[in-house]
Amino acid sequence: MDLQYFFELTLSGLTRGSIYALIAIGYTMVYGIIELINFAHGEVYMIGAFTGLIVAGILGTMGFPLPAILVLAALVAMLYCAGYGYTIEKIAYKPLRQAGRLSPLISAIGMSLFLQNYVILVQTSDFVPFPSLIPEFAFLEPIAHIFGSSDFLIVVVSAVLMAGLTVFIKYTKIGKAMRATAQNRKMALLLGVDADRIISVTFIIGSALAAVGGVLIASHVGMVNFAIGFIAGIKAFTAAVLGGIGSLPGAMLGGLFLGLAESFGAGYISSDYEDVFAFSLLVIFLIFRPSGIMGKAKVEKV
């Protein structure tokens, strides 16, 4: 086997995987706490990319240096997406907390369609080129053709964010309250945890991470359009399922696993069916091991 080709695929799989993991965290956290598949999450990621684009455009004409633009664009996108995440939850899910399982799901699909069409209306339905914001790192020069600086940045930023999140969940008060709520919402409520606030925080964090993912991947690929959220959303969801939905480390691992699987599948079998691999993995896992690689099976109480 060609070793260099193998490394290339591994590295590009790593890049993709990091992004999937970043988005998957949003799905998994929300699912862990309110057991809902937030269909609109992919759209938040897309909006993150668009916000990044706009901010970068404004700053670009004002003559800011590249790294500053990147950081600012990512920050603003995080802020706005956090706002979107918060608002989406308040409008489409919170009133349905008591309804069955079908209603919030349909509401989520409606929200997702709404956001897509909203972006079509207020921006455009075409592909828009995204300025490449990521500076070339000198030390990556020798391997730039297989692992560019944008790949590097994506992997590093994702790793840092995920490590930060893990620490946050493990050691802060809100993080602990979040874990408690995920375990048993009623009990947490009795112990004085404000469940509504926790759910809001969950949506905010998930959306902010998706926004970073959106900005990074957009400047890596160089294109955005209104539909990128759909595919990315499903794939990230797949990642969350692979890792066992509801589990944070699972989402991260699942993301990497999916990224690598896709990259190898595309590299060694056929790139035409790249997306088919992801969907097939999703379907196979949901059917045969819905609890994911690391999840636990649940027994339904009668």
């Binding site: 489409a92 209603s103 509401s107 929200m111 369609l113 209306l121």
Partner: peptide, 20 residues
């Protein structure tokens, strides 16, 4: 017609909230 899908998306959410 330009607003068709967006209105239906909004209607879907509102329908679930107010008139499931």
């Amino acid at each position: 017609s330009e607003y068709r899908m967006i209105l239906f998306a909004v209607a879907m959410v509102l329908m679930m909230v107010f008139r499931p």
